[in-house]
Design a protein around this nucleic acid. Structure first.
Length: 100
DNA sequence: AACCTGACTTCGG
DNA sequence: TCCGAAGCCAGGT
């Protein structure tokens, strides 16, 4: 299994209504420092691999996409799964973080 | 092989 | 708790 394949399979395991951080995924794939590599993968494979990319957010518990660049879409996707956002667009990690 | 990019993370002030 | 700087990874050019 290559690092990239690990990332793909891991993201596919994230259950509905839960979210994971880039760093968390990288760590599960065996590379605690590979958060940025995860980003690259989402860019290259989110379309063809049918990944639940919307369940991946940053460590602060918020969506990293900019409004008009996919932010709204991701937020709607998550809310439709039951994930709630506060006034600052952050989610309660203690409650929604995916714990494998 | 060097350099750049990207939806990050961590640490110090 | 918030902001900026520095560090890190994989793939493409």
């Amino acid at each position: 299994m290559t690092f990239s394949e690990q990332i793909i399979s891991i993201i596919k395991r994230i259950p509905r209504g839960k979210v994971a951080t880039y760093g968390q995924i990288a760590a599960l794939a065996g590379n605690p420092r590979g958060a940025r590599a995860v980003i690259w993968l989402l860019h290259s494979s989110s379309g063809k691999e049918k990944l639940p990319w919307h369940r991946v957010i940053n460590g602060k518990g918020q969506i990293s996409l900019k409004p008009g660049q996919g932010y709204e879409e991701q937020r709607v996707m998550l809310e439709s799964e039951g994930v709630e956002f506060d006034l600052y667009g952050r989610v309660d990690m203690e409650r929604y973080r995916w714990k494998p």
